[in-house]
Simulated assay, not measured.
Amino acid sequence: MFYPLVVLFVFVDVILLVCQVFPFVRLQDVAYLMGFIPAAAVTWQILTCLLMVAVVIAFMLFLFSVKRSSFLGCLALLNFSLLFYAFSVYGGDVDRGKFWRVPESVPVSSQIVYFYTYRQGAFLEKYFEEGRPFTKAAYKGATELWFDKEAGFQDKVLLIVNESWGATLNPLVGERLISPLRNLKNVDVVEYGSKDFVGATVAGELRELCRLQPNHFNLSDVSEGFEDCLPGRFKRQGYYTHAIHGAVGLMYDRIHWYPRVGFDERVFFESRSWQERCYSFPGACDLELMVTQLSPMLEREGKRFIYWLTLNTHSYYDARDLRGDYFDCAEYGVLPEGEACRNLKLQAQFFKGLAGVLSELSSGVDVLVVGDHSPPMFDQREKEAVFVDSKVSYVRLRVK
């Protein structure tokens, strides 16, 4: 009985640790997404292997200590470790009321109890409704206004779901990122703000495309529920619909469900030959996609709805994807060597590139850029010093 309990406690600790970075809801989703590890960035492959090795080594060392030491000695060591941990976190000034984390900094608590209690909440219960792949989104997307009107769009409509574009604590940082758009003479910034959201990338996509949230991530065989999504709506208004994403189409089964959502044309990493391959997540580089795919689509004749899910601002925010330095982290009090700084530099590069594309357009376009989720980071203290947790940014534009 003793050993199974140890395994259970370690398992819950590991799950909650992972969920602090990636807030997965179902254990089945974790197992499903593990199948995509070979397509992930090398950094994630190494970290996954190290995590598995660390868990095995920790468990083996525990068993060894139990066999070699007295029970009272092991118990004393365990209690000393727990006491040290309690004092290290108690009374801290960091807000711990975050998703998947104990809501208060208390000296004694239980991850097991919290794990069970949280999963009984009304929000998570929606993910386990039998027989339904989707439920109505718990968070309103920035595209809500587009669902509410059937006319009044320009001939070109561009929706960009921007990977890991969160809301910053310092509003000047956010303004600095979108400043290339504000400086364009042919573009009006209609609205800029933030919205609440917790979830993975595919949940962010479905929030904006369909006003839905997934009950699971395995969408390869799902054929129902996509009837009222934006691409289908625009198709019924006479628009030709495009989807662009630099990763392979098998990620999150997009190669299967994008056509069912209503996209006439899909471009993935395997669709073309690319000059470069970027690093933050393996795939085509966003800057190349802007020039070779996005810009030509916007210049084609006829009514077109274009959807683009960006890639290079994906965690771990690899600095090798930077082609220039367009954001001074030190100027805004952001740690220059940290993940937050790399995220902001990559975002600044993205918006500068997008401004370049929009500046050359010869026809009017309605544009909406919105984050999929807040930027995942390993160092929560660093994230909390720069970003507002559980919020995404958005900006609405109109090219004249």
Rank of each mutant, 00 (worst) to 15 (best):
R342L: 12
G141Y: 11
L145A: 12
E301R: 10
S273F: 05
T135R: 14
G152Q: 00
F99L: 03
I255Q: 09
P103H: 12
Y118R: 14
V291D: 13
W146R: 11
F64G: 06
G35F: 08
D366C: 12
Y32D: 07
V392S: 05
S223C: 00
F327A: 03
Q213E: 15
G174E: 14
L294Y: 05
H256K: 15
W257I: 03
V399D: 03
F263Y: 15
I244D: 02
L75Y: 10
L219A: 02
V392A: 00
A385F: 10
N162F: 15
R119G: 03
D29H: 06
V21H: 07
P259M: 14
A284W: 00
L5A: 02
E337L: 08
Y307P: 06
E191D: 15
Q154M: 02
G262E: 05
A200W: 05
V357G: 03
D325P: 04
Y192F: 15
T143C: 10
S271A: 08
D389W: 13
F59D: 07
Y316Q: 04
Y3E: 04
S223G: 02
E104P: 00
D188M: 13
E270N: 03
R233V: 08
Q213A: 12
R342G: 07
F128T: 01
W44Y: 06
V291C: 01
F71N: 02
M377E: 09
